[in-house]
Design a protein around this nucleic acid. Structure first.
Lengths: 243, 243
DNA sequence: ATTATGAATTAGGATTGCCTAACATAGCAG
DNA sequence: CTGCTATGTTAGGCAATCCTAATTCATAAT
């Protein structure tokens, strides 16, 4: 019972009594993202995502397993338990609500909401997050199009297509873009490639060449690595953009 | 140069390049509060305020001195340096802006804004805090009446009188109440003893007895320890409340 | 079946913050 | 001026996280 107070210091999220630290929440988020909810994740991939040495991940992962947040077999990767998954989704909800709130209520620039939310998600109480959500009308997606888990821990897990993988001639609607790189986000905004935008894949140069898109009235070419970060859904013929 | 990354983890406030941890910001705030800006502070008092063992304070205080945030002589208390004072005021500004924002923009209950701000102040960027401030019209005081330091680190340091120290017969305006105890705040709100309220000290029972106040049309008695938490300014005769 | 290669783990450290127990100092009371 | 009591400090530890270096394991290629 000694040192009982210790953990209070970086204690997070003032909520349903878990009390996870910031780093722990980050690990869970990373594992969730890498494993798409369920599915085994390699410790090296966690390390890479969090910019942490692989050795450090081994240690942390053991502790998380002890806490029942994930199951773990030496040398065989990691899988979130139901508790771990719920904790990850709670953090994800916080993150995305905060992003949405910053964007809508405070006109926070969309390329920077991610970084800000990355810190606030560990400090905001459930009450605050809920107030933010209701202040902006309980959105279902964040500014980058990522689905926001419900209070009950349900998420839309629909999978969309990376723009890079679809063929020329197809009309698509942008559903979601990757949110981490501010510079990329600024560029995408400049091209008007944002969630909801409709565009036509005009052509794809071979050998991973540039992809030409018609966006509104203009044509733009983007590289395949950028196109891989843009998730889209095909438009039905009925709603195909006029050409 | 090893372990250079370490500090990034709990790194705060994304700002003018300092990068103080949450605990460090808390120490500086405490020392500022106890020393009223300048003035020597006893390590024991810091310990008491932060609910930390005195021994722990000795250690931390040495580190803060090494970082040039305070000056410190063994056995003779602690004093903020100019840098320390500026850091404390920055945190104080964050705290109070956040409180004000939560209260005004999100209707956050006034007895809980303190606790929430206590965590957010270590995570919010300067940009966010500034956006919050301008969203609510750059307030000068927080919901409890505490003055908000300017971006440049200036604060109104006017001293007011604890209600407990003034004599019967005097008309006063409530300027500020202590913000830490939610229960007390709820009670004060119930009595309508909130910043801006005008009231008349009707009588003071001797031997630290209750103080009777006329608030609007009603009479209320409060104990001296509560009255010590309420700071007021005397009304000029011209604006004395009608009786 | 053996071995190279890459993935993952252990070993050994560092840092921040906090704790308890034991010791030291200052400052006043006599 | 001596000694008590307050207050403060050191000593020794622990827990969370991270790091580098060295080692172990899994597996695919010989």
């Amino acid at each position: 019972m000694k040192n009982a107070k210790r953990a209070d210091i970086h204690l997070m999220s003032t909520s349903t009594g878990d009390a996870l630290t910031g780093p722990v929440e980050d690990y869970l988020k990373a594992i969730y993202a890498l494993g798409r909810g369920t599915g085994a994740v390699a410790t090296n991939d966690i390390a890479q995502r969090l910019l942490i040495a692989p050795a450090s991940v081994s240690g942390m992962v053991r502790r998380l397993a002890d806490q029942g947040l994930l199951s773990y077999e030496r040398y065989h990767g990691v899988k979130l338990t139901e508790r771990g998954r719920r904790a990850a989704l709670r953090t994800l909800r916080r993150h995305r609500i905060i992003e949405s709130y910053l964007s809508k209520a405070l006109s926070y620039p969309w390329d920077r909401v991610h970084a800000e939310a990355e810190r606030l998600e560990h400090a905001a109480s459930d009450e605050l997050v809920d107030r933010m959500a209701s202040a902006i009308g309980e959105p279902n997606v964040d500014p980058h199009g990522a689905p926001i888990p419900s209070r009950e821990g349900l998420v839309d897990e629909t999978e969309y297509f990376p723009l890079a993988e679809l063929g020329a001639g197809l009309g698509v609607r942008v559903v979601r873009v990757s949110d981490e790189d501010p510079e990329m986000l600024r560029y995408l905004a400049e091209l008007e490639i944002t969630p909801g935008a409709e565009l036509l894949i005009v052509s794809k140069a071979p050998f991973s060449g540039p992809i030409t898109l018609r966006i509104g009235a203009t044509l733009q070419s983007i590289g395949p690595s950028l196109a891989a970060q843009v998730l889209v859904e095909p438009l039905t013929d009925l709603e195909a953009p006029a050409h």
